[in-house]
Nucleic acid binder design. Sequence first.
DNA 1: CTACAATATGAGTTATAGCTCACATTATTC
DNA 2: GAATAATGTGAGCTATAACTCATATTGTAG
Lengths: 203, 203
Amino acid sequence: MPHKTRVTPRKQPKQDRSKMTVDAILTAAAHILTEDGYDTASTNRIAERAGVSIGSLYQYFPNKEAIMTALRERHIDEMAEIVEAAVNQTAQQPIEVALHELVKACVAAHRIDPTLHQVLDEQVPRLNQSSAEAKIILLLREFLVQRHDRIQVQNLELTVFILERTIESLVHAAVIEHPEFLQENQLEEEMTRLLLSFLIRQV
Amino acid sequence: MPHKTRVTPRKQPKQDRSKMTVDAILTAAAHILTEDGYDTASTNRIAERAGVSIGSLYQYFPNKEAIMTALRERHIDEMAEIVEAAVNQTAQQPIEVALHELVKACVAAHRIDPTLHQVLDEQVPRLNQSSAEAKIILLLREFLVQRHDRIQVQNLELTVFILERTIESLVHAAVIEHPEFLQENQLEEEMTRLLLSFLIRQV
DNA sequence: CTACAATATGAGTTATAGCTCACATTATTC
DNA sequence: GAATAATGTGAGCTATAACTCATATTGTAG
């Protein structure tokens, strides 16, 4: 459902010191969320932990929701970088190899900060769309398009949707709730098998 | 992360009128969440919408979180009933048919109240484990065990995990964000194909 | 019909949390 | 070095929201 609260910055940091202030605020927010959960993450506490004044915080973030949105984007951007690197590195490889590397990259991405990831998912309200997630969708579409000769795709958007949702949800749940499935690459192997048997052209 | 706030009822309703009070409170909460989102769902507003006093609300729910937990359980229980009916009705059918019916049942379950489902997922803090979700896991394990002669399973728990996460996340995302994929049973067909090719023994 | 149990009530308390804004400090430009 | 722009400050305001508790009402059992 569309949400109207402004989350774009009140003003953009121009000097190094203000860029560092913004970064300190987001890092402080991440630490508090990770250590004590969303309930304790008041804006006063975030500012104090960042070592800045509450007024500084509100210079760059119009409201608390804007802080959480910026933190979520930063976190997903970091994850997308790992996925993008994997997709680029395996661009010339056959899909069997590339898909396995893709899955492993997603596991690595989720392991950047699994506790923060869990709190962002389970406790922090999600009130607007993420542009960082859209980037991952584009990566996966490119991944499939590069291999259109090997795979059967009738509806590209539907296939991208299935690929992204399946990988994200399995990796997410495994890293956060069932790390035992990740021992000896069990889940990575099964996921690769699941998706290969779905994607590769049946003859 | 373990959470300590009590969410079990302060006391159990015994008479019909108190059971109706509890039901009215949960229904009022669902309506407010669906119409205006979690931010506006104050306990005073929920009580008013339910037509009861704030003191009545706190007789049965120790805190706001307990209301949200009870509502989530009620919602997932309703969904689990549809899935259970489908699993039972197709118990004697081959996996090709049963899996397709299972996927369709999950779509139907998500269509009970998709807006409430979305708000519960995206806005309402999730601070404790759901016993209703565990019920669905048991259903899916039974679904697989009944067909062990047709499918290849090395690690039953891992396969149940993959089945549940894959179905839940794809159906959830489709019903809430991409209903276009559900036209002409596109997604149901693709999901059935994805999971069949993964489950059925390769020879 | 009375006593007791179950249930209901809502004004008021408590406890912050989100955010503002008038003023101070620092960096940059000329 | 002064003027301007950028940045930083924190006491205090505002606005609820979560929850309590002393009292009232209703249902049930004997």
